[in-house]
């Protein structure tokens, strides 16, 4: 049994074998694997006794449940109006240059994926970005580069 299958079994045992557990199970897998591959979705469907189409239908609806491969760290920069007014464009540009990718892409070493997100709920302290589940409000170009450098060092 693969590592992912073990994880799925654990999650299903924890949350219960029913449809209501689907979101927590999908979220648990994404948390550790960063992506829901076709095989993973089929395994989840089998474990919860649902049709694979229904599991894919749910997974593909949600922005944070990625069905395409992502980097080990996912950067999400808020692009909604107040963060826009506070200069999120410069930050995106700086990180694009630093990581040598465009928004939506993943670096060659698979360390980072750069994405934008709709309102992250820090409008009074914009611009703001999420790296994985960690939040960084009131960033500027300099700070954002330092934060990503730190993550880069910590990621083997």
């Amino acid at each position: 049994m693969s590592k992912t299958d073990v994880l799925i079994k654990e999650l299903v045992t924890k949350y219960g074998k029913n449809r209501n557990s689907l979101m927590p199970v999908l979220q648990g897998v994404v948390q550790s694997e960063k992506c829901l591959s076709e095989e993973t979705l089929i395994s989840i469907a089998r474990e919860l006794e649902l049709s694979a189409a229904e599991v894919y239908g749910t997974a593909s609806f949600y922005t944070f449940l990625d069905t395409v491969p992502r980097g080990k760290n996912i950067i999400r920069i808020c692009k909604t109006i107040t963060c826009h007014m506070k200069g999120k464009d410069e930050i995106i540009l700086a990180l694009e240059n630093m990581l040598r990718i465009k928004v939506g892409e993943t670096t060659h070493d698979k360390k980072f994926t750069l994405l934008t997100a709709n309102c992250l709920g820090w409008c009074h302290k914009g611009p703001v970005m999420l790296v994985n589940n960690e939040v960084f409000p009131e960033i500027n170009v300099q700070k954002s580069i330092e934060i990503i450098e730190k993550f880069s060092k910590e990621t083997a």
Partner: peptide
């Protein structure tokens, strides 16, 4: 599920 742009009170 506070998602309305400009709202952050619930957080």
């Amino acid at each position: 599920d506070e998602g309305e742009p400009g709202t952050f009170k619930d957080r």
